[in-house]
Write a protein that binds this DNA or RNA. Structure first.
Lengths: 184, 184, 184, 184
DNA sequence: AATGAATGAGACTTCATTCAT
DNA sequence: AATGAATGAAGTCTCATTCAT
């Protein structure tokens, strides 16, 4: 009975934070209950076993394609990509630690791995679509797929390991400019 | 006394494999002993605590700069980078799972994080040096740092998550070509 | 769920007995569980770490001053002291092995040492008060503190090492008489 | 290869110190070897099992009666007792921690218990002899045994728990004076 | 629906002791 | 005679999970 939201919700939030901080294995369910401010028994009442928590967390991944119209600036690939990254950043911020968590636990938990790969592919696809839409005929003969893969990689790294440090913000900008320049 | 190599060495190899497969926390020392073919007590005889195993593994990281003369093809950035990646791949193959392990455990274990960051920086530096050496005056006005950062990222991803799958080999080639093209 | 009393209580009783029999270090928690008739895990459920058991045992020490009116026979120091010793004996019998345990573990466990010293001082103070009350003006010029220290020592020894053997009962009586005689 | 004396001797000294500091059970043989400056194997080479060390230590107890002529001051019980205590102190100082150690481990190790009791009895006997020799006919009708028992107790306490603190030195003096006074 | 006491498997670690050299 | 690598038994403690209420 602490803070806000339903008990179930608070448990998920606590689990997300702790898994990301300590890792899945190193996080006791008792500690999740403690941070969520609920009795220990309730965690297993809602999520019979511990991996169920991870599964539930994966379900909550923000998904759905970004609306192209929202980010594409005709003829300006660099600005369009910057816009896309901003939208993806905002999404990631909504559940700040989840990306990180997934990256870490991808290996041991097949569910997580699949979700992570699907997401990565989706991001690469979106990057490609944005480049094609913004670049128009000018990029027809470029290797857009490689460009998209590199950008998607930079975004993943940013959301998982680097976490939008100011340094990383600058680097990201320059990388996007570099890629856009190559496509010009 | 089973199989090959000294007991200490076999323990390290077993630990490296299991940590990479299951993660550090999820790997019991008993299982390391089992895979190494030694009694449980011997693991703690050589490595008092479990994290000491991780530390010893980090010590074994292949290090040292790649000889520029060995990989640089004058005037051909794409080939030079491909050559550099090949050398780094070979090194990584010498301790195939270690890169992966580092990436995963970077967060919870400060030693490991530092080693990982240092390595990442070193790779980016090497990539930059190769580009400068191979590209000559032609790349003087390009954003070589961004190019190097992207390539280093692709290399890291390749050595940790993707693990040189044929698909990844193809993608890597195209990414290198793309970056080299942008620098031409 | 075996025998009588709450599980927590039975664990404490078992621990007290075993610590006194074998010593703190030489008593495995598993053996405490066994004697208490509870599963091993329950011992650590109630007392997270082993020293917590010792601390809990120290808490249970019978304490509080003896009522002077209850033991003092005016003008008869010997009888008064005998009465005091009888009351202290009865108290010690309520947790028969605890005194012994404290004496033994005093060195390695600071908590215990403090408790022991405090107790020892308290007993000496009581002895002195009884002597003063029973002796009246007759003892004003005697070294009552030394007398009290010697009696307190004899009591401690009796409760820890000697354990009220008939031999010790006789010796105690004579020692008290000797001290009382010296004060007459 | 450190310090003085034969290896065997250094092992015994190290064991005595560590047993007294940490207790018998809590002292690893490896640590004894370390403090003695000898290889770990040597400890078990000289003393096959750990309790053998305790047994050897008990053998080394300073023993033999104190020469009465050396301490008795005719007609002065107080001075005689003070002299006796000084001699016993000096002996105890020769192996400063041994008394303490014995007291602690008496319970669990029958050898030790017996040695301790024998010693205690010997001290009480000596005290009685000194009182009789120094007091002469004047003490014939006193309870010398009780007096001796109390003094022996104070000496034991002093050598085991109190360890000659300045406070204890003062207390001891007064206790001896008190007892001597009672016998006058 | 919710709770927290209870359980037991298993993790890490220590250490006396053995033994080949 | 001396050594230090090697062993395995045992100890403390953690924790996911169950279950009676």
């Amino acid at each position: 009975m602490a803070e806000d939201g339903s008990a179930r919700e608070r448990i998920l939030v606590a689990a997300e934070e702790l898994f990301a901080e300590l890792g899945f294995d190193a996080t006791p369910t008792s500690r999740i209950a403690e941070r969520a401010g609920v009795p220990k028994g309730l965690v297993h009442y809602y999520f019979r076993r511990k991996p169920d928590l991870l599964a539930a967390l994966v379900q909550r991944l923000p998904s759905g394609a970004v609306d192209l119209g929202q980010v594409v600036v005709d003829g300006d690939v660099a600005s369009s990509l910057a816009e896309l990254v901003a939208v993806l950043d905002a999404r990631s911020d909504a559940s700040p630690l989840l990306s990180h968590l997934l990256w870490r636990e991808a290996d041991t938990h097949p569910d997580v791995r699949d979700a992570l790969h699907e997401r990565h592919r989706a991001v690469a696809d979106q990057v490609r679509d944005v480049i094609l839409a913004a670049g128009g005929p000018a990029v027809a003969d470029k290797d857009v797929d490689s460009a998209a893969a590199l950008v998607a990689l930079a975004v993943s790294y940013r959301h998982s390991v680097a976490r939008h440090s100011p340094d990383d913000d600058r680097l990201m900008d320059r990388e996007l400019a570099f890629v856009a320049g190559a496509l010009a």
